[in-house]
Design a protein around this nucleic acid. Sequence first.
DNA 1: CGTGGGAAGTCGGGAAATAGGAC
DNA 2: CGTCCTATTTCCCGACTTCCCAC
Length: 599
Amino acid sequence: DREHSHKEHKRDKERGNWKNYTTGGKKKAKNEPEEKWKWWEEEKCTDGSKWRFLEHKGPVFPPPYEPLPDRVRFYYDGKAMKLSPGAEEVATFYAKMLDHEYTTKDIFRKNFFKDWRKEMTSEEKSKITELKKCDFTEMHEYFKAQSEARKQMSKEEKQKIKEENERILQEYGYCVMDNHRERIGNFRIEPPGLFRGRGDHPKMGKLKRRIRPEDIIINCSKDSVHPKAPPGTRWKEVRHDNKVTWLVSWTENIQGSIKYIMLNPSSRIKGEKDWQKYETARRLKKIVERIRAQYREDWRSKEMRIRQRAVALYFIDKLALRAGNEKDEGETADTVGCCSLRVEHIRLHPQMDGQDYVVELDFPGKDSIRYYNKVSVEKRVFKNLQLFLENKQAKDDLFDRLNTSILNKHLQELMDGLTAKVFRTYNASITLQQQLKELTSSDDNIPEKILSYNRANRAVAVLCNHQRAPPKTFEKSMHNLQTKIDEKKKQLSAAKKELKAAKADAKTLRDEKSKRAVETKKKAVQRISEQLMKLEVQATDREENKQIALGTSKLNYLDPRISVAWCKKLGVPIEKIYNKTQREKFAWAIDMTDEDFEF
DNA sequence: CGTGGGAAGTCGGGAAATAGGAC
DNA sequence: CGTCCTATTTCCCGACTTCCCAC
């Protein structure tokens, strides 16, 4: 890379040219890195392959079921009853959840009981006919005691377990992809249990069955050492498909969907995809005003489908809504996004709180997180919405002439690679950049700068509706922090008093010793007031963060190069913004970004 | 052209585990 | 320096978007 001029190098960085990028962290080994990208640069566009060599050890299965000791009993209708191993295992899943609210839910109980009965012997089946006559409390107590015992283990025992986990991680947690050892994201097969689902899920409580080697499809390269199935078993299939990125897959029994084992976010294959995502969003930035002009124009179209498309796109752009695919009714929780909004989710107010044309949105979004917002829109949008609502029932679609596929097809015509979700990425990232510019000043100290960063991050989280339940210990931890602040304040005034006294001493004594004492006291006051300021900033930050989750936007929506550039420009260590895992994921950005990067 | 379904990959909050700081 | 508690990190596992293909 030495022949590369500085200028060229910088240009490569800005363009995000991966040719000269190596996974961050360790020093480059001689003659190693550039090779990594060569074939990729040459072949990726033409044939769509994702790798050319892939070797791994396959998945790690959860331990087999261990029957309960005889003293732990299950009671039916008040009488102790020994269950067959199969039925007992499923019963333990339920027993473990007794503390949870959802064991009180009708659907959960009904689904569980139905699936449980399938695992019973015919004898058990005829005896156990009602869930409410089942008493799992001994089992429940047993598991509580077990986890308590785990906590009480000696340091040596804990150390041993840790070492064993590390051994498994080293053996199964990595693969080799194209001459690089890469970390695997989820190399453990999910253990069996009861399906929960999020929100009001019609399948909650159903049995998620144990995955066997015979369910597993292995994907690796032909010329690799194939993973061995556990003794006495065989894989469902071993295939060699380099058009996909997964190493292992199986079909899950609740929704019948496919699950995968894929690489960690720090891997080349994920990092590159991530980078590409932000490059697409940056391309949108260049033409977004044109697109906006067009959809505003389309609000007046003669065609209903065009008007609906234009208003939906306006929502996606302005409110950062998700696309909103249609979902199978009865198979999933009732949640919606933009295209699947129904009449019941929207209310129109010609006047509200001194604003004109207010749209009130209230719907269950992804993961059944509530989206609630009141927003003033342009007259034309408002009139269109009134039109869309005419002669419709609560359950009818707001955009009856639109779905995500139509919308995305339209977007694809406006820009290569443009889809609904690109708007979310774009608006999130541009908001961060703007907010950082607005909120931070180079005169601020580090804690203040970090507060500003978090506030910018919060603006994005609010935009994307990343809410969380206030942490259970929120009030307490807030109170603790306040106590600390009060103590620090006392400390400060005491220190100030001492300083004053020392000054007085110095004035009368006028000797070296008392002068030095003044200096020491001065330093103490300074130190303490700095600590106090830090605590106060922390308190503000925490309070403002009560119901906001920053993680998701930071990890998935904010171009890391914005943060890296900001850190460099303002002299904030990157560690203050990204923890270790995040730095690994964003290694590409940390490596290639200059302080003058613009999204 | 729409539609329906499968496949692959990204996004998501909460719980569990671990690290780190106070005592 | 050990213990305990809190804060942060990691894991878990589900939910969604997009693409693609058959009809």
